[in-house]
Design a protein around this nucleic acid. Structure first.
Lengths: 208, 208
DNA sequence: ACCTGAACACCGTTCAAGT
DNA sequence: ACCTGAACACCGTTCAAGT
């Protein structure tokens, strides 16, 4: 019995490391979303006290940054495109795909203000392509912002769409009665998937 | 002394009403942001117990919805434009301006999934203009989504920009060394205001 | 009818203490 | 060195009780 106990304590000790904590945190956030990611939950998943985490992680912010760093290194770089506009499209699509598989990224990027430097190789290619298209720094940051902001908004809207629809079904059926143009659109809107990111992205890139 | 006490209790009673609560909540959120809006804070600002609010407001969600309804009715409708594309631009700009003066709107719209029906007159004009431009329901919802998603992303990025920059100044100066195109852009980026919403909006509307 | 205090089940984090 | 329990200052909300 004593040996069994010491075994489990040994395992418990081995479990607690920065990377183990990051893995556990990623698992939580991917299963149950960012709100479910609490220090206490991570700790209990690792069968440790909540305070044990703080030896390997400065605070919740640092935990999120670590998660971003890890995810950023896992993003597969797209093939280099000969057409510069196509190169830009591919890069933004890569980022957008990352937002789709890890929706919490957008939240952290925007609201925690943390970004990983591991994403720089991707951005370097983006800015290089813009440069070849004749954009100076000002124009580059302007177009970059436009594309990224659209990706932010689209991702957030997409990831909250189901919840929003659920709530909106409570709206009175006759709410749109006085608004004919709206009514006509709304009939389609409820079931609309509007997953038109790539098509709209190409529209935007074409304006560069 | 007794009369003084009864006076204050009378005033305290008069203070507590749905609209008084909404006003207090709006004042908080405009001064200190959405995170500062707690039921306890609203109550204490009204010199009431936290539980007293629940007589006039179902829960925090209902409070937010009430705030949105109030703000939505205060949005000034833009002048009708003879050019349909210009009409669309004006309407989206109106929405964007509302997002700028009440940044919390975007957060509530997206993450709480609550929207006010009081905004329908504005949307009716938007969909009507799109219809006149030859858009069916599908195309309308597609373009509408693109424009609104961009407005979402731009607003969120704008309102969190200062905080993000503050954090990013901690980054090592030589982080961009290996990335020449990025370095060149970044020199401009730190001070860049990229408040190019209207110009980009026009670009987008032109593609309709 | 209107208001409320105590209580419940949470949260991140500090701090002093264990091994 | 690594881990932890108790504690602090929060949160939204339930519930039973006050007036």
């Amino acid at each position: 019995m004593t040996s069994k106990l010491s075994k489990t304590t040994k395992r418990a000790r081995a479990k607690l490391s920065r990377s183990a904590i990051l893995d556990a945190a990623l698992a939580i956030v991917r299963q149950d979303g960012l709100d479910a990611l609490t220090m206490r939950r991570v700790a209990s998943d690792l069968e440790a006290g909540p305070m044990s985490l703080y030896r390997h992680v400065k605070d919740r912010d640092d935990l999120l940054l670590g998660m971003m760093d890890h995810v950023a290194t896992c993003i597969p770089l797209p093939k280099q495109q000969s057409d510069d506009r196509e190169e830009i499209v591919e890069i933004i699509l890569t980022i957008h795909t990352a937002f789709r598989s890890d929706p919490w990224l957008v939240h952290v990027l925007l609201f925690e203000g943390r970004g990983s430097l591991n994403v720089l190789p991707l951005f370097e290619r983006l800015y290089a392509a813009m440069g070849r298209l004749g954009c100076g720094p000002a124009k580059s940051i302007d177009y970059y912002s436009m594309l990224l902001h659209y990706a932010y908004g689209e991702s957030l809207s997409f990831q909250t769409r189901d919840k929003r629809r659920e709530i909106q079904t409570e709206w009175a059926e006759d709410a749109f009665e006085a608004y004919p143009a709206t009514s006509k659109v709304m009939e389609v809107a409820w079931s609309w998937k509007y997953d038109e990111f790539e098509r709209n992205l190409r529209r935007l890139v074409a304006t560069i």
